[in-house]
Write a protein that binds this DNA or RNA. Structure first.
Lengths: 189, 189
DNA sequence: TTAAAAATAGACCGACTTGTCTACTTCAAG
DNA sequence: CTTGAAGTAGACAAGTCGGTCTATTTTTAA
């Protein structure tokens, strides 16, 4: 698998569970079973490892979500599937994403507040990517670009809200409640 | 004002801006202009100071939000006012809450992931408190407890989603978009 | 088989971490 | 005026931080 990927995997797991500033380089090295010099052979600093971990999580999460949504007909069904997907995530039924500790990107922006910081930007880019995925499906059931944008935005807010509620309050049904609201919004008649 | 409150104020400001694990005790002491022994005279550990900071933010935020909502007639107007209030927050028009760096409680739960941790529990309690405030107003325009609960939940998710979108993506209009969606949900005709 | 590349363990650096301790000063109440 | 509490500055402890360096071993490829 390669030492570099071992480092990124281990770093992501520890960063996601405990936060980034709470985890030291030495702990990552020990749990990955990799020597310190090897890390600094692949990355020029801890920050550089953090960026790699964020990028890895971006691909991991996006590919998984896109895969789940693509398993359904484009449009309404795919959008509803998103809520079922995150419901599985909240309830630890998606090993790929590790145990649920909220959204790694939201958590990370809490530690890198400045919007100018490369790590923060990388997190924003992930969210934008997911939004585009929603918008693509929203277009299938909308009569205009604007309408699609508004629908995607509403579903996006509900999803983000559900993630927060599930993590902070431990509400494991947050995704299903969000889905019920979304369902009413898409076909209210 | 008292040294204890100086410490809590300074700690909250630094924790909110940079995250908790990124800020050391010595930095808090220096910026507060307080001696180290004084801190350990009032608090038994850094964690204890963290709890005090979370509690302080809870009161600061809740009192502010409740005040804003109470400035409007109970029910629909008060619920809509919530979105205007957080819109002002996002755009740094609420000095009491400091510059906007997302939700301190969401950010803090990212650093204290375990739901059993006292700090995490304190954050969850804050969210529950805000939810009850919403529910109280939702009851004014609902025909049943269940309907009020569902309405409060929907508005809560939209608000949390807007906070995340505003912080991570820098979308300063997130609150207004959430308000538009909420408005359609409350009186869809 | 041999030579270069990559990985290893671990010493080492200066700075910083939370927390304790001492000695001195400020200040308010009796 | 005195006594005691509260605050001060700063040394100190034991450990961790990110990062560099050396010396050795393992792996890979020609």
């Amino acid at each position: 698998m390669g030492r570099r990927q071992d480092l990124v995997d281990t770093a992501l797991r520890l960063f996601y569970e405990h936060g980034i500033h709470a985890i030291g380089i030495n702990q990552v090295l020990q749990e990955a079973g990799v020597a310190k010099q090897t890390l600094y052979n692949h990355f020029e600093s801890k920050d550089s490892l953090v960026e790699a971990a964020v990028e890895h999580r971006d691909n991991l999460f996006f590919d998984w979500l896109e895969g789940r949504m693509n398993s359904q007909p484009a449009g309404r069904e795919a959008l509803m599937e998103m809520f079922d997907a995150v419901h599985d995530w909240f309830n630890n039924r998606v090993p790929t994403l590790h145990r649920f500790y909220g959204c790694f990107f939201i958590n990370t922006c809490g530690e890198y507040s400045s919007p100018e910081h490369p790590v923060h930007k990388r997190c924003a880019a992930h969210k934008a990517r997911v939004f585009e995925l929603l918008k693509r499906h929203a277009l299938e059931i909308s009569t205009s670009e604007t309408e699609a944008e508004e629908l995607a935005n509403a579903l996006f807010l509900l999803k983000e809200g559900a993630i927060v509620k599930a993590h902070v309050e431990g509400d494991l049904d947050a995704a299903l409640k969000a889905k019920a609201i979304a369902s009413r919004m898409i076909s209210p008649h």
